[in-house]
Design a protein around this nucleic acid. Structure first.
Lengths: 327, 327
DNA sequence: ACCTATGTTATACGAAGTACAGTTTATGCG
DNA sequence: CGCATAAACTGTACTTCGTATAACATAGGT
């Protein structure tokens, strides 16, 4: 029983490809008589030809397609009057469900379960120290210990879990120290990145964001933070720097999401701060934006710590993933 | 055939413990008639009692120790006249070879092979793109694919290798862009860390370093860089920051060592720069040191790139590890 | 279509840590 | 000195992790 966000992730590629073709035939996007060729399909699906072959064989068995006197397969049954339609399949704009597309992109089970585990592991840490047992997690995810160990190794490398003296996996506790260290680091690198990014920011997008703040009252600080990261900071032409910023924010934003889920209302005036910041970025010398970002981060840090303290004393923290046992 | 720097690393703990006890009995540090108790030995060796038990059983089989009417084991053979010596083993100052001590500290084969692989993988990257095949590396190291995959996963997390579209492991190439990105990042975070570290630096050690520069003509820039990192920058009371700096330097210093091995002479005047820097740190306002560090890093970056270019064209780069195949 | 490499599973076993019950040793006290 | 009691130690069962190994499906390349 895999709890991945994407249940399609475990299915073999040929299944996914067969599914896509099936749906496109049903929807009439692939018309009767269309000539299906392995190579072009493989290109469209961004995969190799082997799974396409398998998918086609399967569809043939289902009688959705048929062989004919020539290379490839024809959509539908061949009758005397069928005229093969030979066109580039890319022109047809196949309907590829995003879930399937996502599942086709990444290879590796561990990638599909990783995000979920990361989220749960990160967000439990406000409530103290938790232990993770490999076999339990494996059972929970419905995968083998190999995959679990892969996930755990990466969580360890990314600083979300560690090993106890007894070599057991331990998550947390998230101390005020950890959080303020991470915010301090943000205060150092994010303004610097913003400065480097300045020449590469697409300012039209920033204006759109400002527009959205004005018009959309439901916009959340998390969305703003993500948008700021993607449109401004991540535009810095320094991969090492941007990657580092991302990984440093990982734990913080997971915990933030956990706090929201627990019902802590986000600050109203944070939105205003983002508004000011975006305004500075798009209409003023970048230095002022950098300085403001630094201040904003130190304010955010204080609020973040305050919110953590409130939640930490909630007795009914309750809903941890079953593989997380409090120590 | 494991190529680890420390061949003792593969042996089980009880072997190591038995070895230590054996040597200490032979050396007479553990006198005839001394009462060996599991618990205290476990404490001294920083382990649990189980491997100590195993070690004692082994020594008993070798007749180096014997049981007697009471708890524990006696060193040597029991005769009528033997009087049990009951003393705290910690007072005896057991002889524990550093190699054994090191091997006792870390658990896990992958840790023992990791450093070697990291060094080789990092340093080959000046010469372009290399491929690593899991089974070949496994054979080379004399370990299973499990361990190799663990090592590779961590190398990937640390940004030293990646996967190709075909899901093969690829190291490198180390581009000028990568290097200057990393140096740019250093220029942002290292001065900041130095500033945070200032109140925590043990200035006596800095003075010692300055002294060594004066007196020891054989001192290398690498040693200076490491010393600066450990004594000054790493003293910053922000774990996240220091860890980040460490991981960012990893590739750069591995490549640097590779360049030295290839016979590129290190700069003479770099030493002078470190001298100035340490002088600023210990005797002047920290801001001046931070500024100087920033300048120093940008100079170092330029030189580093120049040295890379020289080496990259050496035809006989030659001596890569056998599991690294150029693409 | 064959060859090679990776991703994953399943299984097995050794090594090491923990918990607990039961025994021995040390210590304090009369 | 003898005894009671606390503290220390051992034996053992149980748990978890580290590694090895074989096997197979999937995928990419030629």
């Amino acid at each position: 029983m895999i709890r991945s966000a994407n249940p399609l992730a475990q299915e073999p590629r040929y299944e996914l490809i067969a599914r896509v073709l099936r749906e496109n035939i049903a929807a009439g996007i692939l018309p009767e008589g269309f000539v299906l060729l392995e190579g072009p399909i493989a290109t469209v699906m961004q995969t190799s030809r082997v799974p396409v072959q398998a998918a086609l064989r399967q569809l043939l068995e289902e009688r959705l397609i048929s062989r004919f006197d020539g290379r490839g397969y024809l959509v539908g049954r061949v009758t005397a009057g069928t005229v093969p339609i030979r066109r580039d399949i890319r022109e047809l704009d196949l309907l590829i469900p995003p879930m399937v597309d996502d599942a086709l992109q990444t290879r590796g089970t561990w990638r599909h379960v990783y995000d979920e585990v990361e989220e749960e592991v990160a967000s439990c840490q406000i409530f103290g120290e938790f232990r993770i047992v490999e076999t339990e997690l494996a059972e929970h995810l419905g995968v083998s210990r190999t995959v679990v160990r892969d996930v755990l190794a990466r969580l360890q490398e990314r600083g979300l879990i560690r090993k106890s003296a007894a070599s057991h996996w331990i998550a947390g506790p998230l101390t005020a120290r950890t959080v303020s260290d991470k915010f301090e680091l943000r205060g150092i690198v994010e303004p610097a990145a913003l400065r480097l990014a300045a020449p590469h920011i697409r300012y039209a997008e920033v204006e759109d964001l400002l527009e959205r703040i004005e018009t959309d009252p439901a916009i959340t600080p998390q969305e703003m933070a993500d948008a700021l990261m993607e449109h401004c900071i991540a535009q810095a032409p320094n991969t090492a720097l941007v990657e580092m910023i991302r990984s440093n924010r990982l734990l913080l934003s997971a915990v933030d999401r956990a706090l929201i889920r627990l019902g802590l209302p986000p600050d109203e005036d944070t939105i205003e701060q983002y508004q000011t910041l975006l305004d500075l970025i798009s209409r003023h010398p970048i230095d002022s934006a950098c300085e403001y970002l630094r201040d904003h981060l130190s304010i955010t840090a204080r609020r973040y710590l305050a919110r953590m303290k409130i939640v930490a004393v909630i007795p009914e923290a309750g809903a941890f993933a079953p593989y997380l046992s409090p120590q």
